[in-house]
Design a protein around this nucleic acid. Structure first.
Lengths: 125, 125
DNA sequence: ATTCTATTTAGCTAATTTGCTAATTTCATC
DNA sequence: GATGAAATTAGCAAATTAGCTAAATAGAAT
């Protein structure tokens, strides 16, 4: 379970547009790209493989992008693995799964309380 | 559906410890308290009813708490309703429901892609 | 060994955030 | 209408964040 400090880090990490976009790329287009060291023959999406590849998609300097990636790593949203002189970035799905669970629990408890108080179930329109 | 700008606002709003705690109180203990104008006879949890009540739970000034509440409101995490000279705060569950959905979609797509690539299903340990 | 590539660190500035107090607004009550 | 309570606005200071360039580090390739 994520403690509050960890949640705050995650929210902070995702509150910046550049970091949010990196996150999005790594988890969607970027996903397949973590394969390229496991299945070298497979043609993969080049987005988000390593720091400089990610940086190409932004009009910010490499050190700036590097710092953003560090913050995403410290929030455990991504994992980084050094291979040679490159750093490979991968999504950390477990953290996102936890976040999905936290929000879902809040919603479920809320709906359950509503049912207990009002005796109805919510129909989302 | 939440657009990116809206998501960024939500993440930013929840990235500050004080705002996160207000959010938590409003959605859990604070929930019942939105009843007190609907069912005046019912004994309700006094947490998070109005701005000054929330402020009592923190060692920050009222204007500071007021500003935090404004940011939560602008992120559509809570709703505020002025009744007389008090401002009643209520959870906006739809926004949280949307967030739960976004994270869950990301997780589902991720797991589905994993299955397509590797032909397995993930068992969370 | 030198050079090149990928990345991080250091040091800086500008912008933003977070807190405060004092003043103002709004509404209720006397 | 005056007073009091609840909340917001204004204006300010301190801390943090986000960007930059230059320099340093680590590994690969010549």
């Amino acid at each position: 379970m994520l403690d509050m400090e960890q949640k705050l880090k995650i929210f902070k990490a995702l509150s910046n547009e550049t970091r949010f976009l990196i996150f999005k790329n790594v988890f969607t287009g970027g996903y397949t790209c973590s394969l390229d060291k496991k299945q070298p023959g497979v043609e993969v999406n080049p987005i988000a493989t390593c720091v400089s590849t990610i940086a190409e998609h932004f009009n910010f300097s490499l050190p700036t992008i590097s710092a953003h990636i560090k913050e995403l790593k410290e929030a455990k949203i991504i994992t980084v693995e050094k291979k040679g002189n490159k750093v490979y970035i991968e999504p950390n799905i477990e953290t996102i799964r936890e976040m999905a669970g936290c929000f879902q629990t809040l919603v479920s408890n809320f709906d359950e309380n509503r049912e207990l108080f009002f005796g109805d179930t919510l129909t989302v329109q």
